[in-house]
Amino acid sequence: MEMTYRQPYRTPAAALALLVHTLFFALLYFGVGWRSEQPQGMVVDIWDALPEAAPASVAEPAPPEPAPVEPPKPVVKEVAAPKPEPVKAEIQLKDKKKPIEKVVEVKKPVEVAKPVPPKVTETMKAEQAAKAEMERVRAERAAAEAAQAAANGRVVDEFVAKIVAKIRRNIVLPPDVPDNAKAEFDVTLLPGGSVLSTKLARSSGHVAYDSAVERAILKSQPLPLPTDVSLFKRFRDLHLGFKPVE
């Protein structure tokens, strides 16, 4: 007696099997990222305000046209939203300034923002305010750079003094050296503070003193250097002068 078996669950079973595999591979593909590369550090600049004035000042003589390209940053779009009255636009801009502050931007946002064309209803007042803002940001940047340079200079001076002091401690003074004898050396350093070469730039006139200074320089290795590696280039070639009495 032959029996026929109904198998109504074939198709659902196949669908479920496919679903299981799809889920598993989706999990593997999206959930697991085996990557051997290190994540790249991102350099950011902290800006008080977005430099939206840059395109306006560049394209100032051109008559305002409808923007064909959508501006990349939503903040800019909000500022440039159609405003019928100029006075209101200014108020709007002032209001917007608060949230714009401390926007973290990828470096060189000025170049990024340049292709943005001028907006239809940007008033002269808004432009001027934005330009003033831009000037202020530039000035602040320049000031910050100057301060940084000054700080670097201080560090360099400090470490040159440390180097000279260390060498001076190692000088064994020969007898009968006149007080005004001054030996000048060109010292070339390696990163890490070891001395690559020393060259007598100007003799003190007292040969024993010259060689005593040279020995002291070599004995003082490694010379103290700042931990900031970027400053090393200012220590690569040093010109140092030594007198028996300072």
């Binding site: 669950y9 079973a13 196949a14 099997a17 496919l18």
Partner: peptide, 18 residues
């Protein structure tokens, strides 16, 4: 292995329902 896995899951579900 992928084919075998698909088949075995198919049978697993079929058996489950049956």
């Amino acid at each position: 292995l992928l084919l075998v896995s698909l088949l075995s899951w198919w049978y697993i579900f079929q058996k489950m329902f049956a």
